[in-house]
C-alpha cells in the first residue's frame, strides 16, 4: 500500500495511469480489462506499462462491450474488483442493459446480499473532427438511474483521486474522463483518493454569481469568471466532480449567498443534469433564487466539422453572455 504523497506536475492521462497502477498495487482483487488495454498499452495510454508490471491482471478483450460490462458485474459478485475501460462513452450505449438493468439493480434487489464493486472508466466529449458517435457527453443518462455513482473529473488531481476512490468503493462507479483534457497538466498528489465520493470542489469564491460545472467546462468557467471580473462581477465556481451523488449542500449554500445560478456542462442542455440542479435549487431556495441559466450543447447530434461543432458546444463566450444576461434580467 502506497502512502507516498508526490505533488509533481502530471498530465491528466498520466494521472489516470498512476491511479490504475496504484489501485492494482493496493488491492490484489483489482483486475483491469478492455479493448487494447494490455499488450497495446491502451488506445490513449491510460494502461501503459500495467500489463508488463501486473501480468494477466491486465488483459485484452474482444470488442464486446455488453459481455465486458456484464462480466464485470459477475466478477464483482465473485470477489474481484474489476476496472473496465470503455474506449468511448458512446460505446456504453451497446451495453445499456448490463449497466441499467443489471449493475444498478444488484445491491438493492438482493437486499444487500450481492454487490457490484466495479469501475467503468471511459472518456467522452467532442474534439475537433470527431464524429457524432465519438463526441457525446452522456453522464446525465446514467445519473437518472438509482444505484450508479457518476464522476466527471476535470483536473489531473481529480482524475487520480476520483479513480482511487472509485476503485475502493463497494458500489459501482462510472468515471467519465475527458479526451480533450488528457494532455492538460497540473499538480498531482498521489497515494490516496480524495476521500469523499460526491464532494464538490470550490474552484474560486465569489459573491455575485454561482457557476456550477464539471468536466471540460470547468476551465472555460474559470476563464469566463476572469473575463467578467473585469466588469466587476464576482463569480463563485463550483466543480461538482460527481453528479451522482452530487453536492447539493455546497450548491445551495453558494447560491444562497450569490442569488444567481449558472449551470454549465458540455453535455446536451435538454434533459441535461443542469436541469436537475436548477430544479433542486428552485425547490430549496424559492424566491431566494433571483435568476438561473443553463448552458449545454445545443439539441443536435454533434457535427464533425470543427466550425459546426464549435457553433453548438458551450464556450467561454457563451458563459460570459450567460452571466451578463443573468444579472441584467435581475436588474430589470
Amino acid at each position: 500500500m502506497s502512502s507516498r504523497v508526490d505533488s509533481s506536475e502530471s498530465s491528466y492521462i498520466r494521472a489516470v495511469n498512476q491511479a490504475l497502477d496504484d489501485a492494482l498495487g493496493a488491492d490484489s482483487r483489482v483486475v483491469i480489462y478492455g479493448e487494447d488495454v494490455a499488450i497495446p498499452n491502451g488506445p490513449f495510454g491510460a494502461t501503459k506499462g500495467l500489463h508488463d508490471k501486473y501480468g494477466d491482471r491486465v488483459f485484452d478483450t474482444p470488442i464486446s462491450e455488453s459481455a465486458m460490462i456484464g462480466a464485470a458485474l459477475g466478477a464483482a459478485m465473485g470477489g474481484l474488483r474489476p476496472i473496465v475501460e470503455i474506449m468511448y462513452a458512446d460505446f456504453l450505449m451497446v451495453a445499456m442493459d448490463q449497466i441499467v438493468n443489471q449493475i444498478a439493480n444488484t445491491r438493492y434487489v438482493s437486499e444487500g446480499r450481492l454487490g457490484a464493486p466495479l469501475v467503468i472508466r471511459t472518456q467522452q466529449g467532442s474534439t475537433p473532427g470527431s464524429c457524432a458517435q465519438h463526441s457525446q457527453s452522456l453522464e446525465a443518462m446514467f445519473a437518472h438511474v438509482p444505484g450508479l455513482q457518476i464522476a466527471v473529473p476535470a483536473t489531473p488531481q481529480d482524475a487520480y483521486g476520483i479513480l482511487r476512490d472509485a476503485a475502493s468503493s463497494d458500489d459501482p462507479v462510472m468515471v467519465f474522463e475527458s479526451r480533450r483534457l488528457y494532455p492538460t497538466k497540473g499538480a498531482v498528489a498521489t497515494g490516496s483518493g480524495l476521500g469523499r465520493v460526491g464532494q464538490a470542489d470550490v474552484v474560486r469564491s465569489g459573491t455575485d454569481v454561482t457557476i456550477v460545472t464539471w468536466g471540460t467546462v470547468r476551465a472555460w468557467a474559470e476563464e469566463a469568471a476572469d473575463h467578467v471580473s473585469e466588469s466587476g462581477i464576482s463569480c463563485e465556481v463550483l466543480d461538482l466532480r460527481w453528479i451522482s451523488p452530487w453536492d447539493r449542500d455546497a450548491v445551495v449554500e453558494s447560491v444562497s449567498k450569490t442569488g444567481h445560478l449558472l449551470v454549465a456542462h458540455e453535455a446536451g442542455r435538454v434533459g441535461g443534469f443542469g436541469a436537475e440542479i436548477l430544479s433542486s435549487v428552485v425547490e430549496e431556495l424559492g424566491p431566494g433564487l433571483k435568476g438561473a441559466r443553463r448552458i449545454g450543447s445545443d439539441p443536435v447530434p454533434m457535427p464533425s466539422s470543427p466550425i459546426l461543432s464549435a457553433a453548438v458546444l458551450p464556450s467561454v463566450d457563451r458563459l460570459v453572455a450567460g452571466i451578463h444576461s443573468l444579472l441584467k434580467e435581475n436588474v430589470a
Binding site: 483486475v31 455488453s66 459481455a67 465486458m68 460490462i69 456484464g70 462480466a71 464485470a72 458485474l73 459477475g74 466478477a75 464483482a76 459478485m77 465473485g78 470477489g79 474481484l80 474489476p82 442493459d97 448490463q98 438493468n101 443489471q102
Partner: peptide, 12 residues
C-alpha cells in the same frame, strides 16, 4: 443477460 454475468463469475 445471465451469460455475461456468469462469465464474470467464472473469471473470478
Amino acid at each position: 443477460a445471465g451469460v455475461p454475468i456468469a462469465l464474470g463469475l467464472a473469471m473470478a
